[in-house]
Every structure is written in C-alpha cells, then in structure tokens.
Simulated scan of single mutants.
Amino acid sequence: MHGTALSGWLLVAVCAATGAYCVLRLRSDCPRARSSAGGEALMGFGMAAMAVPAAFATPPPWIFAGYAAVFGAAALRAGWLVHARGAGGGHHLHHAVGSLAMVYMALAMSAPGGHTAHEGHTGPAGGVPLLTGVLLVYYVGYVLTTGMRLLPAAGPPGDGAAPGWGARPELTLACRLSMGIGMLAMLLAL
C-alpha cells in the first residue's frame, strides 16, 4: 500500500483491533453475533497484514498468492452462505464482495512493479482502474449506510437490560464501519 508510514500503522492498528473484537464475538451467547464474526475477524486481521507499511517490511513475493488463496476461499464460503440462507444472507454477500476485493488487491500488489500494479488496466483517461472505481463506489455507499445506522433512533427506552458484550449491535456496527473505512483507504492507496 502507498501512503505515509503513520497512516499505514494507524490502519494496521484499527484493523487488528477490529479483528480482535470479532474474535471475542465468536464467544458470544448470541448466535446472530457469532454468525458473521469469523469472517469479519479474518477480514480485520487480513487487512491489518496487508496494510503493514512496505518501508517496515518487504513482503516475500509468495505472500500475495497466499492472501489471494485465503480470501478466495473466504469468498467461496461467503457465497455458499448467501446461497444457503437466501434472503437472510445479505451480510454474507458483503463478506463475499469484501473477500473478492482483498483478492483483487493482493493480485494487484503482486504484479511486477510492486504496489503500483495498475498499469495496463487503467481507465480511458489513464486514471483509476474500473474495478477499483466500482469497489470505491460500493464501499462509500457501505460506509455511509453503516454510519447512518449508528445514529441514535428516537423511540421508547428499552427495559434497561443491556445485551452481552458480544451482542452489542452498536459495537458490531462500529467495527463494520471501521473496516469499511479501512477498505476505502486501502483501495485509495492501491
């Protein structure tokens, strides 16, 4: 990824913290909280690993094939869950898109020229590649809609019983929002 070392390390920290919270959600009593936590943990830790600034550690050439294989498998699993759950698999569709975006970034980073792998598939004016642009539009929409869901809703107060730590919807949304913003940052730095 391009960019300053500070922004790279901040992205690593946010993505790793998000991945760690998602691992904790795997132990929740709420089945709904556990259903997507594994995929989100993988995404958080994978984004953290891919965002490590190149000035700190030059990754071996084979690592990008490893990223592509892991996230390709995650995309297949998410696609299977979308198919198996039908209309109830909406968030798994997002996981499939995110995993495929990670495959795309891994392949782009592995191309000759290192992290500047957009040669040969840029847009008509030599700008942003079409697939990168489509993913940017998708993630801007995702970040905006997820951010809107975090806004407090007016309504009658509940019974006062707070859900367990793994089933806090606002924390889950905040993690998803941070990963969406992280994905935007990674796509912009590609």
Rank of each mutant, 00 (worst) to 15 (best):
L131P: 12
G120I: 10
S36K: 07
P112G: 14
A161R: 15
A33V: 05
S178R: 01
L173C: 10
R176V: 10
G88Y: 04
V14W: 03
H118I: 14
Y142H: 04
A84I: 03
V103F: 07
A20R: 02
P53G: 02
H95K: 06
L42I: 15
P59W: 10
L184D: 08
V12T: 09
L24V: 10
L26D: 05
A69T: 12
P124V: 12
L42S: 10
A87S: 01
V97T: 08
V52K: 02
A57V: 07
R25I: 01
F64R: 09
C30D: 13
R32P: 01
A69Y: 03
S35T: 06
P61S: 14
I63L: 15
G147L: 04
L24D: 02
M1H: 00
W165A: 15
M183K: 01
G166W: 07
V134N: 00
R32H: 04
L171Q: 06
H94P: 00
P156F: 02
P129W: 10
H83R: 13
V23D: 01
S28Q: 07
A174R: 01
V103Q: 11
L100R: 06
V140H: 05
G155V: 10
L184R: 10
H2D: 01
H121Y: 11
R25V: 08
R77E: 13
T132P: 02
H121G: 08
E170S: 14
S110G: 15
A65I: 08
R25Y: 04
E40P: 00
A48P: 06
L100G: 06
L130Y: 10
A167F: 02
L136D: 01
Y67F: 15
W9A: 00
P163G: 07
S110T: 04
G39M: 13
A54F: 02
L81I: 07
G141A: 15
S99Y: 06
W165V: 06
P31I: 11
Y104C: 07
R27I: 09
G88I: 00
P61W: 13
A189I: 04
A20H: 00
V12S: 04
M179P: 04
A13S: 14
L131S: 08
V14N: 05
L184C: 10
Y67V: 06
A57F: 03
L136G: 04
L42H: 03
G88F: 07
L135W: 02
H91E: 03
A69L: 12
I181A: 14
R32Q: 07
P152R: 06
G38Q: 11
G123N: 14
G133A: 08
R176L: 11
